[in-house]
Write a protein that binds this DNA or RNA. Structure first.
Lengths: 212, 212, 212, 212
DNA sequence: AATGAATGAGGATTCATTCAT
DNA sequence: AATGAATGAATCCTCATTCAT
């Protein structure tokens, strides 16, 4: 039967999906494989058929969903765009979309913060695969804008983190404070980009200002 | 010896301190009370003499260290300062000091992200005690600067989170990626403030600019 | 081997049997599940696979062995017998057999006395399933004997407990004072029945006697 | 101060009283000394000043309240009475009063059933001090009545337990089934005595009947 | 491939008991 | 005499992991 064959093929993915939900809900340590299993519609034994240990399951779950994100990042970066301003603001919007507004991306952030200490390999890979290239990209965009005379020289140009900070903070916000206060996301993003681009703008008064 | 009495007074604090270290290292679920006990130099039973459950211990630990932070925030806010620029940048430096560079503040951030779901009461209190007042303060400073003609009108003025984003991100950075890459903190903070103040500066070209 | 499957079927019963022995020996609170497990030839975990908590194990153990008794009571009551005297004395002998001489029945009595306060549901069920119907049965037998002119009217006719008292007392005796003094059970039962039937007998002198 | 002196003197008694309540409520194993202490208005340490261990406390509590009962039994037995019928029924009423209706007496019965196995010495003493003499007394009363021609010869005469059975059963009843059904105690006791005395009555038809 | 019964080490919690004050 | 902080052995219960079927 095809149904069965298809099931078989889909099993690991279903388990990873269930694992994501449970780990996101309870964190690594407090998640019970039993719950992952029943959410995936299988039994504990089946999980062990596909994944050696709870640690491995966690690791592969992260790898799996990271890979999806990674592909999107690559795809995005391949796209051409016009002015440097536009490129930069597009990238920022992309980051908001993927790491703050998208639940998967956000929860991966949580996994890093919550369980990173127990999975140094994961953290290193995540850093190498996402964080470093993304920061690199931001820095390049800014440098290119500076070179083109579109942006001013600023010490912040060395720190993509400064550029991206508010986007990550919004992700954290959703992870922790959802329910405490509503945020008008559109206005937030626009405010961020507005402030940022204004801070990068070349004007007579800051054109030649050296870093303090 | 006054050992007995003196110990009695000190015990809860010692246990809280030990609990902070263990919870910070392993997270709520993976922390063993036995380890907290031996770090505090007592036995398991003693912890239960002072704290009803592991949950309570965690909660009171957060409360304890939060209270210290809260006091510092209040004290800081009481201080007068000169121009609005200076007030704002002083506050930003304060936030870096307390929530990014200081280990206690940083780890409290981790607790919120990692275990907040299990302690909704703690999250609500933390929000009410720190986050809301701090954001409020930032917004006030910006508004006052605008009113004084020192800062321009910007949609970011409504979102203290945008102003503070890079500071929180640096905290996260230390929590997760320490060891992946060194960061020149001084330059980071200066870059942040420089970019921000430039973004808030009133210039002929942005004086009346509407958000793009 | 069918070992696996066969065991699976038998496990719960084996655990219940072991639980009976341990609970009977030590009472609910002082029984260690570990001991139940090793008596049943399994490990602690296995008990929890079949029974949610110690309380549940206790409850289901009672339910299990009560059900056996209940079946016997029902079966007995279905049997026809001759005179009312005979019916009554047969029933009394049955009660001795099941609730005083039989260890299982006796220990269930102990469980009610010793741990009933912690298991009000069990007590209520036991009362509804055994005690009430048995008393009901006794009362019916006596009433029928009275109606048939075989027994005299007596205020004790309303209280099956009075009729059965010595039988239960013998059960208690075995529970508590075994070893203090030997009892000639046969003579005891005969003495009880003799006294009882004589007390119920219709004679010229008591035929119409009102209670003193 | 006299108050203090008096308190000191009363402490052990207050502790025993509190112990009775707690042990009666929860049984030996499930009773916490902490609860006994707070009920007695002292701290755990104080209990250990007066009683070496939990076992000793239990034992002395039983001894204490048994002694009160014992005194009453002795006192009762010293009283003269008229006919043997009356002596017997008085004694039965006394037993009802002391062991079924009186909470202390009843709960001591529970202690024997519930925890007797762990306190064989207590059981033996209880048997020697109460049970044996009481049964002895009942047997004597019946024998004397027979010798006086007031009662018939019956095999039950050897078993005071048969005579007293319903009284003990009523005690058990209150211990276990209170709340399941109300019992009209007065009618119950009268029914018991009526049935018993009728069973012991000498009539033409049973005057010479040998035991079957 | 999948099941789920069984394991057993691990960890939270309880509580009788001790002892410095 | 009395306190109550401290202990630590005991015990319930959990859950990752195994393995016969």
């Amino acid at each position: 039967m095809k149904t069965r064959m298809r099931r078989k093929q889909e099993r690991p993915g279903e388990i990873l999906e269930a694992a994501f939900e449970e780990f996101a809900e309870h964190g690594f340590a407090a998640t019970r494989l039993e719950d992952v299993a029943s959410r995936a519609g299988v039994t504990k034994g089946t999980i062990y058929f596909y994944f050696e240990t709870k640690e491995r399951l966690f690791g592969e779950m992260i790898r799996h969903f990271s890979a999806l994100l990674l592909a999107e990042v690559d795809e995005f970066l391949a796209k051409p765009s016009e002015s440097h301003k536009e490129r930069l603001s597009n990238f920022i919007r992309f980051v908001y979309r993927r790491f703050a507004l998208d639940r998967k991306g956000r929860e991966i952030l949580r996994f890093m913060v919550a369980d990173g200490k127990h999975f140094p390999g994961l953290v290193a890979r995540h850093y190498a695969d996402f964080v470093a290239p993304s920061l690199q990209r931001v820095n390049e965009l800014v440098q290119m804008g500076i070179a083109a005379g579109e942006f001013r020289e600023t010490p912040a140009a060395r720190f993509g983190e400064i550029i991206m900070g508010p986007a990550v903070l919004l992700g954290i916000w959703f992870l922790v404070f959802t329910g405490q206060r509503e945020i008008d996301v559109e206005a937030f993003v626009n405010g961020h980009i507005d402030l940022l681009l204004d801070g990068l703008r070349v004007t007579p008064s800051n054109a030649a200002s050296p870093p303090p």
